[in-house]
Structure formats: C-alpha cells, structure tokens
Nucleic acid binder design. Sequence first.
DNA 1: CAACAAACGTTCGTCTCACTAACGATTTGG
DNA 2: CCAAATCGTTAGTGAGACGAACGTTTGTTG
Lengths: 177, 177
Amino acid sequence: MSRAETPDPPENAAPEDGAPDDGAPETPDRLRRRASRLLSQLTTQSDRLINEGLARVDARKWHYAVLASLQEYGPGSQATLSRRSGIHRSDMVGVLNELAERDLVERVPDPDDRRRNMITISARGRRHLQHLDEVLDDLHDDLLAPLNPAERDQFTQLLTRLLDHHTRTARTARSAP
Amino acid sequence: MSRAETPDPPENAAPEDGAPDDGAPETPDRLRRRASRLLSQLTTQSDRLINEGLARVDARKWHYAVLASLQEYGPGSQATLSRRSGIHRSDMVGVLNELAERDLVERVPDPDDRRRNMITISARGRRHLQHLDEVLDDLHDDLLAPLNPAERDQFTQLLTRLLDHHTRTARTARSAP
DNA sequence: CAACAAACGTTCGTCTCACTAACGATTTGG
DNA sequence: CCAAATCGTTAGTGAGACGAACGTTTGTTG
C-alpha cells in the first residue's frame, strides 16, 4: 500500500503500545470544536442534571412546562397546551395523567366542545410550580456555574437567537410546500 | 409568602375562544428563558440538521467521530476509539460494522493481544473523512447562520467551558466515591 | 341538510441516543 | 497460579421526538 494520497502518518503520535491513553481521553480537535457536538454533549449533561434534580421532587421537565403554561396563559385544551409547551400531543396524554394523579391539574371535558378536555391548574399545582421554579433556579446555577452573570446572559441570548432562527426556518419549511 | 396562595388569575389573558393561538405558539417566558430548555431544543434542531446532511452522503455523526480519531491519533483498539470519540463501547460495534462495510476502516485481530481488534483507517476512509469535513463545515454554517464570526467564537467558547466543567465534575464524581 | 374536511384525544409504533448488565475469551498483577 | 481486569459483543432499558391511524366531534360548503 503506497499511501500515495494524504501520506500523513499520524503526527499526533499515537501512544503505540506502551502506555495507551489512560486518564486523558485525547479527543481530536476537529471533533471537540464542532458546535453540533458541543451542543449535544452539553445537552446530555444538562438533561441529566435537570432530570435528576427534578426526580428528587417527583417531577419531570414536562410537568414544569405544562404547569408554567397553565399559570401564564390560563386553562386550555390538551392541543393548546401542546402547542404552548412544545410537547407532542401524543406525549401530552401521559404527562397530564401524571399531573392529574398528583392533583396538580384538573382535566374535565369541555362542555362547549366535546372533543376537548379543559385543563386547569390546581392550587396544589400552583404551589408545586413555585417550588419547581426554585429547584430549577438552583439547578441552572449549577449548570451555568462556570459563567458569570454577563456571560450567562450572553449565552442564553445566543441560544435564543439560534433557536429562533431554526424554529422559524423549520416552520416555514414544513407549512409552505 | 405574603401573597397568600398566588391567587393570580392569568394576567396574560388567555386567548379564550375567539382567536385561540394560531401562528404564534405563545410559549411562556419562564420556559423560553431556561438555558436547559434552550439547549435541548436547539440540540434537537442541530441534530436533525446534521443527521439529514450526513445522511445525504451515507454517513452518520459517529462515522465522523471515529474516522477523525483514527486520522489524528492513529490506529487503536475499539476500546481506545471508544474513549477517544466518546462513543459507548457497546455502540462502537455497530459503528465499526458500518464503517467496515463501506471499506472505510479495517478491523483485524491484534496478534499481540488477542482480545483486541486493531482498527485502521483506509485510504478510502481518509478521502471520505475529508469530504465529511467539508459537508460538516457547510452544515455548521447553516447551524450558526445568525451569528457573525466573533459571536460564533464566543458561542463555541462558552459551550466548551461549560462542557469541560461538567465532564470534569462528572468524571470525579464517578471515580471518587 | 347532507357530506366532507378538520381538530381533538388517544393508542401504537419507530428511531435515535446514552447507558447498564452480562457473557465468554483473554491478559495482567499480586 | 489464581483472581481481577480488559476486550468485544449481545441484549435490554428509558428517555425523547415524532408519525400514523382510530373514533369522536365540530366546522364548512355545496
């Protein structure tokens, strides 16, 4: 095999046989630099952190999303909540089951439109939401620990801009054709 | 708690019946602001973008990770590649099957340690990796489209700092106890 | 008014991702 | 020499995001 093309023998010097690579995982730069990879890796960590934190108070991300939507915009049908919270409507069923089990929301058939269920947040739900807000504040403090307040703002703003851009282009791409 | 039991009737005025919420999904602020949510939503978009782009050239994220590791640090066992690329060793099997099917890597038993397979990148694999790099450059251009070069640097640097922090604390948390 | 289209809640299934558990084979260290 | 660790592999779990299809109900239109 005359390695005519790209004749790079790995210049980063593979650890050969002696001492392989204990301790320092040595991830290639091109990998580490990719924003997509950074995003998914960090999101994995973030999700783990948030999920574990919420599990300690018998909650999930979705619970917070739904309760917050209810608190801010008032009661709504499951489809409405689905749109507001970004939870797929086929997953909303289970979430509302869990919330109803815990008496955090009430689900009653809408008399005006018998296809719908009207979902209402309960007093207990409001208290729980308040608690979740505190828990999430703490968790985000851990999540963003290495950043000072200004950097945290920068970070969330950059994230917001990127997300807005992509949700818009995704929306127009799927409704137009 | 001075405000007895948060008896807030939704002040944001739910759209009631007239015009529900067409067009503008109206996600509550507390939800939209949470960095964890921004991260997971953006990662969903990012993953979709990258996966679709790579699928067009018959590739996956993992392919790139493994090929890049091989190119930069030379051949290695599956376990070594697993540590370098961050792919779980039980998932590495399938990835290497796919790469070997496409003749992008060679997998031969290591005579010095008959537990291991030595994985080597092929000439075809090097060409493919080069192509993938271009494809990924373009895809990241889409991903980071709303940001100017300086902001892109800021963004990846913030991500890197956060990820480093959490991978370190995670590593020490699991090896120490 | 009849007929068709759309929305709603629900169930089921798919795909990806990260990860755990266990196995047989092999190598290493005390 | 024997126990412990490593390696590759298979199988399975639990999120998360999503699509397809259903029966029910509402709306729209000819």
